[in-house]
C-alpha cells in the first residue's frame, strides 16, 4: 500500500511541477524586454558618471521640472560627495535662481527670497491636486525616488523615454494621450519629453534623444539613491573583512574541535570499532598495520 502511495506522490509532484512550469512560462510571454544601456552605476563597484549627472540635472531642470517635483532633494545635494558634485559656488548659483517662500517675518507675513543650499528643490505646483489639475487630471509623479518606485528601475525609465511611437492602426488615442511601448497599457499622458537638441549641453556633448535619456536617468537613479557610491564602497570593504574573519573563525573552530578528537570523530570511532571487530575475527592485534 505504501509503495502505491509513494508512486502516487511522485506522480503528483511531477504533475504539479509540469503545470507550474507551464504556468510560469505563460506569464513570461507578457513580459516586455526593456532597453538597457551601459550604466556605470550597476554592479558591485558601480559609480556615477559625474559629467552625466551634471548633464542629467540640466535635462531635469530644463525639461522635467516644469511638471515633476523632486521634493526630497535639497540644493546642497548637488555639491555633496557622491552626486553631480558641482562646486559649492555653482550649487549656490543654481539655488539662487529659485524663489522660495519664507517667513513669517516680524510683521507676520510670508515673503519670497532666493533659495539657499539648505532649501529643498522648489516644486512646480503647490500640491498634488494643483499638479493634477494643471496636467489634465494626471498627476506628474514626484521624481525623488522614481527610479526605485518603478519595476525595472533605470532601464524602465530609459526605455519609457525612448518608447514613444506612432500608435498601431487598431488603437485610437484621445487628445492629450500618447502611445508608448513601455508604459503599462501603452497609453501615457506625458507628451514625448526629449527630442534631439531639446537642451544645449554646456560641456559640448551632442544632445541626442538617447544621450539626454541616459543622462537624466542617471540623474534620477542618483536622486533616488544618493548614497549608492558610499554603499558600494563600504560593501566591498565589509565583504573583504567578513571573508578574512570567517576564515579565521573557521580555522579557530577546527582547532577547538580538534581538541575533542579528530574532526571526523565518528569516523575515527568507527575505525576503532572495525578494528576491534577485525581483532576479534583475526584473533590477533592489527595495531601494527600502517
Amino acid at each position: 500500500m505504501l509503495v502505491l502511495l509513494n508512486n502516487f506522490i511522485k506522480k503528483i509532484v511531477i504533475l504539479i511541477f509540469l503545470v507550474g512550469f507551464n504556468g510560469s512560462s505563460l506569464a513570461e510571454e507578457s513580459k516586455i524586454e526593456f532597453i538597457s544601456t551601459d550604466w556605470t552605476f550597476k554592479g558591485v563597484f558601480g559609480t556615477f558618471d559625474r559629467a552625466s549627472l551634471q548633464r542629467g540635472y540640466q535635462v531635469y531642470q530644463e525639461v522635467c521640472s516644469g511638471c515633476h517635483s523632486m521634493q526630497h532633494l535639497s540644493y546642497r545635494n548637488l555639491y555633496e560627495k557622491g552626486g553631480p558634485e558641482f562646486s559649492e559656488k555653482e550649487a549656490k548659483a543654481i539655488a539662487a535662481q529659485f524663489e522660495v517662500t519664507d517667513g513669517p517675518n516680524s510683521e507676520g507675513e510670508m515673503f519670497q527670497r532666493p533659495a539657499r543650499l539648505s532649501d529643498k528643490f522648489v516644486k512646480p505646483f503647490p500640491n498634488v491636486k494643483a499638479a493634477a489639475a494643471a496636467n489634465d487630471g494626471a498627476y506628474p509623479p514626484d521624481m525623488s525616488v522614481l527610479a526605485k518606485a518603478r519595476k525595472g528601475g533605470a532601464d524602465y525609465i530609459y526605455s519609457l523615454l525612448l518608447g514613444y511611437e506612432d500608435p498601431p492602426s487598431d488603437i485610437q488615442l484621445d487628445d492629450g494621450v500618447y502611445y508608448n511601448k513601455f508604459m503599462s497599457g501603452n497609453k501615457i499622458k506625458m507628451a514625448q519629453p526629449l527630442l534631439d537638441g531639446a537642451v544645449e549641453y554646456a560641456d559640448g556633448t551632442q544632445a541626442t534623444e538617447k544621450q539626454m535619456a541616459k543622462d537624466v536617468t542617471t540623474f534620477l537613479v542618483w536622486a533616488a539613491e544618493p548614497h549608492l557610491e558610499a554603499r558600494h564602497k563600504m560593501g566591498f570593504k565589509v565583504f573583504l573583512f567578513l571573508i578574512i574573519l570567517l576564515t579565521l573563525v573557521y580555522l579557530s573552530k577546527q582547532k577547538v574541535w580538534s581538541r575533542f578528537g579528530s574532526k571526523n570523530l565518528e569516523e575515527e570511532e568507527t575505525f576503532d570499532k572495525i578494528e576491534k571487530a577485525v581483532t576479534e575475527y583475526e584473533g590477533e592485534d592489527p595495531k601494527t598495520f600502517k
Partner: peptide, 16 residues
C-alpha cells in the same frame, strides 16, 4: 600557532 590564530581572530573580531 594555536595561540596566534586565536589572538588574530579575537583582534579582527574586535575590530569588526
Amino acid at each position: 600557532r594555536r595561540d596566534f590564530l586565536f589572538t588574530a581572530t579575537y583582534t579582527i573580531g574586535a575590530v569588526g
